[in-house]
Nucleic acid binder design. Structure first.
Lengths: 234, 234
DNA sequence: GATTGGCGAACGAACGTTCGTTCGTCAACG
DNA sequence: CGTTGACGAACGAACGTTCGTTCGCCAATC
């Protein structure tokens, strides 16, 4: 990559990050290209040297973010740890990303419908791919039972599995709406709360959430580097 | 109430419902007053006979919806049933409302930030009141344990309780993003899935979700009438 | 080493359209 | 007959986008 291309890519990333912040605040239609120009220091027309239109800018933002999420999830789930720990890794990955990139996350959740049809289908495909990764992780825990054979429930019907998976996604995705570091603990605390709720519920007795000791030793660093890759929205 | 006032109130409700649909589709800034005029059959300027501004319209929509939710939750939780069943009632209430009024719900979730400061604080107050109702229901289950004394965990720290409550709200609120009646079962199925996940998790053995037999016999009808009251967004 | 020319990148100005809102008017109803 | 409410026309502001131009860098030429 020439320095020329690197500079261009860097500025595209900067613009995307600024756009994520503004869209998260005011919504896609609430952000004007003039707002974005002021936030980035560019003139309004210069933005069109980097993105063909406002809608293409949104599409690029969403595509990059989902690709990052999928990459991080796939890479982190290659380890052959037990289902409950795998689910924790998946949850922590996503919680971590949402807390670190709250504005990008808000865009992902809120502005899927603002895309033109062509881009919407592409993003939809990425979203479904991501959903399947999560559902596989949930299904493994579901099938396994509480870790001991006598509590195993056996296979569950597909609709109930979908509902459970969507519900777990709901816990994770909702983090953007309430989490404040000063009030609600660390991202690890959040991930543990969600994992505990997903696996054991509020009241049941079962093994506590995996500690870091049970996870690969380089786990934390791996996640960070993965999540900062490709999106460039840091 | 004179017929005059009744007619005015009816038309205000109609306009609010149409606005909810449009805002849910395109976002607050994405809906124009001309769109709303076309959807309601009014001329653009006639809308200003009913609402002082576009922002006041949004504020009224959100205020009415939260007031409806709070009323329904408070009324349905007066019965002295056991904590787990109370939590189910709370969850079902909200799921039911979200599925019946998916557009209003999307507005509640997405467009809080679009309000001017004054109205935003008022709505924020309603939202916190609603949160406290849910948190009390969660806390009772949390404290009770799995219904038998030997599994009781005792009191939990406040931050963890908040995290768990927010997570349960997340499961419920996320329903708008995925639920389709043809694919995912009845609203009761959804409420049971969420309740089961909240109380027992994916794997633990514990009493199944309350059946309707355990609930007051007029439960279903009471919910419907409550939820259709005051909002008028039907 | 100085001059030139091509080119990516940034810009201000302006386009036509749409935005939220206001106003004067006029028909209809109580 | 007086009040209410519906309306089209019009407002200034802001929208996304385009255009012509300029600036500065880097390589090729003298």
């Amino acid at each position: 990559m020439t320095p020329r291309q690197a500079r261009l890519e860097q500025q595209r990333s900067d613009i995307l990050q600024a756009a994520a912040t503004l869209i998260a605040e005011r919504g896609f239609h609430g952000m004007s290209m003039r707002d974005l120009a002021e936030a980035t220091g560019f003139g309004v027309s210069s933005l069109y040297n980097y993105f063909a239109s406002k809608e293409e800018l949104l599409a690029e933002l969403q595509t990059r973010a989902f690709a990052t999420l999928i990459d991080a999830a796939e890479s982190s789930l290659t380890d052959a740890i037990d289902p409950s720990a795998r689910l924790y890794v998946f949850i922590f990955n996503q919680v971590r990303y949402f807390i670190d990139h709250a504005d990008v996350m808000r865009v992902l959740i809120h502005e899927a419908a603002a895309l033109p049809a062509e881009h919407r289908h592409k993003v939809r495909g990425l979203k479904e791919a991501y959903f399947r990764i999560g559902r596989d992780a949930v299904a493994a825990v579901f099938a396994q039972g509480c870790g001991t054979p006598d509590t195993a429930r056996g296979p569950v019907d597909a609709v109930a599995l979908d509902r459970a998976t969507y519900s777990i996604f709901g816990m994770i995705n909702w983090v953007w709406a309430w989490y404040e570091p000063a009030l609600h603990g660390t991202p690890e605390d959040v991930a543990r709360s969600i994992h505990s709720l997903a696996v054991c519920g509020l009241v049941a007795r079962c093994p506590s959430s995996p500690t870091h000791a049970q996870l690969p030793p380089d786990f934390a660093q791996r996640q960070v580097s993965l999540l900062n890759r490709r999106t460039g929205n840091d």
